[in-house]
Design a protein around this nucleic acid. Sequence first.
DNA 1: CTGTTAGCGCATTCAA
DNA 2: TTGAATGCGCTAACAG
Lengths: 341, 341
Amino acid sequence: MPTIKEIARKAGVSPTTVSNVLHGRTARVSSETRRRVEAFLKDEEYAPNMGAVILARRNSRIIGVIVFMEPRRDETVLEDPFSSSILGAMEEEIRENGYFLMLHATSDEDEVIRLARTWKLDGLVLLWVPAALCRAIRGSIETPVVFVDTYFEGKDRGFHRIGLDDFQGGYRIADYVLSRGHRRVLFLANDDVHPGGDRFRFEGCRKAFADKGLEFGGDRFVVVSKDPAERRELYGRLSRRPLEYTALLFSSDYYAAEAVSFLGDHGTRVPQDVSVTGFDDNIFARLIRPRLTTIHQDVYGKGRAAVSMLMKLVRGIEPVETEIRLPVRLVERDSVASAED
Amino acid sequence: MPTIKEIARKAGVSPTTVSNVLHGRTARVSSETRRRVEAFLKDEEYAPNMGAVILARRNSRIIGVIVFMEPRRDETVLEDPFSSSILGAMEEEIRENGYFLMLHATSDEDEVIRLARTWKLDGLVLLWVPAALCRAIRGSIETPVVFVDTYFEGKDRGFHRIGLDDFQGGYRIADYVLSRGHRRVLFLANDDVHPGGDRFRFEGCRKAFADKGLEFGGDRFVVVSKDPAERRELYGRLSRRPLEYTALLFSSDYYAAEAVSFLGDHGTRVPQDVSVTGFDDNIFARLIRPRLTTIHQDVYGKGRAAVSMLMKLVRGIEPVETEIRLPVRLVERDSVASAED
DNA sequence: CTGTTAGCGCATTCAA
DNA sequence: TTGAATGCGCTAACAG
């Protein structure tokens, strides 16, 4: 494993010259010596030692991708299809920019800060991290940070973030079921993952109702438990006759798909007896029958956009857009029928 | 950001002593000075500079996780649920061991080698990498490597790998449908992902048939295209009347689920008209209706086992088992009926 | 039990 | 256009 010094010796030049060649500082080296040095670099299979680079430059070209892990929960964070899609997108974008991706799951802000310091991280992407932690983290380090799917309060300004137009999503899906004649509608969300997101989706629904002169009160927000048994219990209640609601608006495709399956197993047909919608438009939505009518979001684009924004920050460019809300789209499939009432 | 030297100065000791405290070399430091130093370390929020560590120790405490990316394919590698589960498991195990995870997708062996060198990686996990590349990689670096889901030829010895008992899986599922009276059976696999894996699964099927005195020839192996349109065409052929086969053994839950949906859409009922099985037992298998009868594999355990073995290698311990084949289990659900013929 | 010292490989002045 | 010298922060061998 040759070092710059050895290459320099073999090429009969100084280490500085080799370094200049390596960094494409063509102005500082004659094209002849450059070619010579480049030949040696290639022959000897020179590979830099990032340890030395970090030490000398005080940054590592590593982007830390932090996924928030709920404390005291045994589940692996990265299990749903969403995680892998967004991670795949980020990996691509990071790699294509010549950076490296360090993946870390935690629920501890100090751990994030320590990671940034010990590795001299060039940038951080924080996924699903609660707003309080985000503030603490950004307040303690100078490393550029882009937040993905984080919901800040109104007073929080100047954060760089990528999110979704949750409100619009909620509005669209509610408006759609309203247009199909549904009035007895429920919004069901797994509250603790994206607290803000679900709230905005719910608010979107409420607005759609309001625009039709209808009310959509807080009692229409049903929390979906993370415990499978409790969920089955919930689905059971929802399928009890006479059916109290004609449309169930889930805040994720996964739970919607699960509900569709459960309801079908218990004699409640979707969409004939009850309509069901999802959110995200992931693989489940297309795979199950009936196909889910849902709100599409571009998860891949979200990942690329996050890293893309971060790269600007890393290079000292202030991005024109600092808060991106990706658009949503209604995908009409087969899980919603017209209501007769 | 304090350095060891500064901590040493404040504590009135030498850098070496601080370093000794840091590394828990209690024998070389009096408990009194240790306490003093520890207090300063904490107060000053000391965080090591990994650049310096890499330089001095010639290793980084980074584990490289390489996922193979098929060349000339636009798709993101990390998209299926399998990827995220195994990645989550590895992240956990790596973190709990005090190491760091660098994620990289590539199809180029030189890139892997360069990565290992420039980052002084302590270890590598290679996912789904073709055997030829694995050989090349292991031959060019001294970094410990664990291979996950790689299929070597008989002559390849001494590789550290984690795989699945594919043969057994194929045997079990075929044996099961045979026991339900099926004879006209097809094995369907997406050949280019785990070429070896699918081949072994197929061989397992063949053995199950042979044990019953039946033949299961190469014509029973059907390649499932990665192109959705071609797959639809295939499913269409499979549902053409009169039905030529009574049981379809898919080598992945995803395609099985897709086929179930497609067949249902086109008037072929599963399992009444045709039985379908999957492989992996992932989330799809439980979500769709009918629920998939499939072969379960412990993806999470696979990830933990891979890193666990790698950690032994990193610490210079030769693991007792160098080639682990995780067991499989038949999960009987609702997608297989008895055959009448 | 504690301290001194010499690298590790690279980037970056500053001189020539 | 090129080179010499210095320092980045830590480890480990060695000396006391």
